[in-house]
């Protein structure tokens, strides 16, 4: 993945050699659009985490076990809806602009987060939970001190996948007037102007790498050492 990006970046760099001055012409636009881009990603991502994590936790409680499988089926079905279709549906309901874009990105990001939260919590062995209960932890303490710490690696892996999808999909938001670097990419395509296209595409790629790196770091530092395969 990184290699691919490096090759891509190299090619882009060679291409850009001749265009460097013209590429820099878009600097102001790019900086402005990156902000919008990040806002879309951050807002939808934060919403997805804020909803997905508690939802995953609730679904992993024994009491909801029966519903959990149903919800996961539905969620799985949801992931098969093409992104473009999702964005189109969001637009037809919420209209044009940032809100439908955030909503579509939110739905897209939610799925891996919920799935991984449930999978992570379910992978905590039953005897650990029983040992914790038997020692006198309240259900909340069992969740806080045993279940979440042992599931957090898988949960963060879900967040990482989700955010990679999210940041990579943000350009499509332009199609429904959501803003972001998609503006340069799609306009570049329309006008057959590769410099403009690249001015949008390169920062998009770099952002995806950056976000992935940041969450990777979070995984490294936040996951307790005893259950962290990275250290």
């Amino acid at each position: 993945m990184l290699l691919l990006l490096a090759v891509f970046a190299c090619g882009a760099w060679l291409q850009a050699q001749g265009f460097l001055p013209s590429l820099l012409r878009y600097r102001g636009d790019v900086l402005y659009l990156i902000r919008g881009h990040l806002e879309l990603a951050a807002l939808s991502g934060a919403l997805a985490i804020a909803v997905g994590l508690p939802l995953g936790i609730v679904l992993s409680r024994p009491r909801f076990e029966a519903y959990a499988d149903m919800v996961i089926q539905v969620v799985n079905l949801g992931t098969t809806i093409p992104t473009l279709a999702l964005i189109a549906i969001a637009m037809s309901v919420l209209g044009i602009g940032a809100p439908p874009a955030v909503f579509a990105l939110f739905v897209l990001t939610l799925l891996p987060i919920v799935l991984n939260t449930v999978a992570g919590l379910r992978s905590v062995p039953g005897y650990l939970i029983e040992a914790a209960r038997g020692m006198g932890m309240t259900p909340w303490q069992v969740l806080r001190r045993v279940e979440l710490p042992n599931a957090v690696y898988v949960i963060l892996a879900g967040v990482r996948t989700a955010m990679a999808i999210n940041v990579g999909t943000v350009p499509l938001a332009f199609l429904i007037g959501g803003g972001g670097l998609g503006e340069l990419i799609f306009t570049g395509i329309d006008l057959m102007e590769p410099t403009m296209l690249l001015a949008g595409a390169i920062p998009t790629a770099l952002l995806a790498v950056l976000v992935d790196f940041a969450i990777g770091q979070a995984q490294f530092w936040l996951v307790p050492r005893g259950v962290n395969p990275l250290r």
Partner: peptide, 22 residues
């Protein structure tokens, strides 16, 4: 029940040490 359990030591076959803790 929580008070009761805290006053009773509990050891299980799978040992059940919490892997996230030292």
């Amino acid at each position: 029940e929580v008070t009761l359990r805290r006053s009773i030591g509990y050891v299980i076959q799978q040992i059940g040490l919490f892997p996230n803790m030292t």
